[in-house]
C-alpha cells in the first residue's frame, strides 16, 4: 500500500477580515481576536484533497496528516481525518512554540522518518499566515527527495508521480520518481468539506502525539535560525477621493483626473 504524508498547519482563519487581528509590535506577534476560528491552512487543505484524489484514482493509499503546533492544532488533524485521511501525528513540544521554518522542517522530516518514510509527501505551497513557502521544500531537501512545486494536478503512475505545475505563462507537466515531495497550489481546486459520516469516523482514527524527545533531532535542528526584528502594519500613504455624481459625471470626472496626471 502506498503511504502519503500530508504536512498541514493550523492557522487563524485567513478568510477573516484583517480587522479581526491585532499586531503586537512589542511582542512581534499577530494576535487574532478571541473567538476567531483556527483552520487548516487552505493550501494544506488542498494538499489533503490532492491525496484523497490520488486514492480515488484507484491507488491503494494510506494518508497520514502531520501537524506541528500547540495542542489545539489537533483540530487541523481532525479536519484532515474528517475529510478522509486515515491517521494523524501531532508534533507538540514547548520547545517548538517559536519554531521557525528551519526547526519546523527538521521536525516534520524527522517525524516522516519515524513513520518509516513514505512514498509521497504533500504540502501546501505556503502557509496562510507567514506566507513564506519554505517548510515544504525544506522537508523535501532534508529527506533527500525530489521536490516539485506549485502543483495543480497530481497523479501517481506506477513508481512515479506526474505533476501538472503552475509556472508563469506556462503549465509544465513533470514526472518525478517516488518517493518525492510535491507542494500544492490553489489552482488544484477547492478542497472537499467533511461530511457527517466521515466526521463521525474521524473520531475513531488514530492520532499520535510526539514531542521533540521522540524524534531523532540534534541541537541545531532544535535551534531557530531566524529572528523577527520587527512586525508592523504598513502605513497607507493614500487618501481616497470618492467621486460623486451621475455615472456619466463620475466617469468624466475620473477621466479628467487621470488625464491631468498623465495616467491615460
Amino acid at each position: 500500500m502506498m503511504h502519503i504524508v500530508v504536512c498541514a498547519k493550523h492557522v487563524p482563519d485567513p478568510e477573516a477580515a484583517f480587522s479581526m487581528f491585532k499586531v503586537d509590535e512589542t511582542a512581534k506577534r499577530v494576535v487574532p481576536a478571541s473567538g476567531l476560528p483556527f483552520v487548516m491552512s487552505p493550501f494544506d487543505e488542498q494538499a489533503v484533497e490532492a491525496a484523497l484524489r490520488i486514492r480515488e484514482q484507484g491507488m491503494d493509499a494510506k494518508i497520514t496528516i502531520v501537524t506541528l503546533g500547540p495542542e489545539s492544532a489537533r483540530n487541523a488533524i481532525r479536519h484532515g481525518l474528517a475529510m478522509g485521511a486515515d491517521e494523524g501525528v501531532l508534533l507538540c513540544d514547548a520547545g517548538w512554540e517559536e519554531a521557525d521554518a528551519h526547526m519546523t522542517a527538521h521536525a516534520l522530516a524527522a517525524a516522516i522518518r519515524k513513520l518509516g518514510m513514505c512514498d509521497l509527501v504533500l504540502a501546501g505551497r505556503q502557509s496562510a499566515d507567514w506566507d513564506a513557502g519554505v517548510v515544504g521544500a525544506g522537508v523535501g531537501e532534508l529527506l533527500g527527495l525530489p521536490v516539485v512545486s506549485f502543483a495543480q494536478d497530481i497523479r501517481v503512475q506506477g513508481n512515479a508521480v506526474r505533476v501538472e505545475r503552475v509556472v508563469e505563462d506556462a503549465t509544465e507537466v513533470v514526472d518525478a520518481a517516488l518517493p518525492a515531495l510535491v507542494t500544492v497550489s490553489n489552482e488544484l481546486g477547492a478542497a472537499r468539506k467533511p461530511n457527517l459520516r466521515e466526521t463521525m469516523r474521524a473520531a475513531r482514527k488514530p492520532v499520535k502525539t510526539w514531542g521533540a524527545g521522540d524524534l531523532d533531532l540534534d541541537a541545531q535542528a532544535l535551534s531557530p535560525r531566524s529572528r523577527r526584528e520587527r512586525l508592523h502594519v504598513p502605513v497607507k500613504k493614500v487618501r481616497c477621493e470618492f467621486i460623486a455624481g451621475s455615472v456619466t459625471e463620475q466617469a468624466m470626472a475620473l477621466a479628467r483626473h487621470l488625464h491631468a496626471e498623465n495616467l491615460i
Binding site: 485567513p14 484583517f18 506566507d131 535560525r225 531566524s226 526584528e229 512586525l231 502594519v233
Partner: peptide, 16 residues
C-alpha cells in the same frame, strides 16, 4: 517581507 496575506510586514534577520 509581507506576511499574513499581505496585511503585515515583518523584518527578519538570520543566524546563518
Amino acid at each position: 517581507r509581507p506576511c499574513h496575506g499581505g496585511n503585515v510586514r515583518e523584518v527578519l534577520s538570520f543566524a546563518t
